[in-house]
Amino acid sequence: MSTETLEAPIVKEREPLLSKRRKKFVTDPLSDDNPITIQVLGICSALAVTTQMKPTFVMAISVIFVMVFSNLTISLMRNLVPTRVRIIVQLAIVATLVTLVNEVLKAYAFDMYKELSVFIGLIITNCIVMGRLEAFALGNKPYDSVLDGLGSGLGYSWIILAVAFFREIWGSGKVFGYPVFEKLGMEGVALNGLMVSPVGAFIVLGVIIWVQRTKTGYVEH
């Protein structure tokens, strides 16, 4: 009898799977605390892979995968990792996951592998991944860390997809490789070669950051 009465309050105290606090882990990085536009992390890949939407999409999926699972792994190990070597441990985990992504792409999407393998390798150095491991996963429970990784990954993804959308439609007149202007009968639309080069990404990203910061009222301190 006594054990039953003890158990009941514990069950009650458990947080719902998607409590308000946890929802914030996912929603915050989408806008108010976006890794690219607010924290200005992961810019290099945002510039490099965003010429077309298709490779950008694969890159986004890969980053989300790496973020979620590295956050999960580090969080599970957080009480075991010796603090003095924690950075190299994080690096080893991230590098392993990135290599996994690369190997899977090589086996099942060889064309994507040829196009993206350089950038996939660079996920290791993507500041967002290490940043979240260091700032969040090392001090929080696994489930929360997974949500945090998912949030940051999605926040990164929607920005690079937005950049890629503008660059592809202005640079090559296509969306996901589909020739939009041609199909709409607007053959003569002038395309801007600047959008294809990384400079175009700088401009688009700058405009997105501007618009977003105006909306959220965020100011650099």
Binding site: T96, K106, A107, F110
Partner: peptide
């Protein structure tokens, strides 16, 4: 061990993809 295992499992598939390419 994890990485070499994955590499072993995916190896034949990768070779096929490379060959096709």
């Amino acid at each position: 061990l994890l990485l070499s295992g994955v590499s072993q499992v995916l190896g034949p598939k990768q070779k096929e993809a490379q060959d096709l390419d």
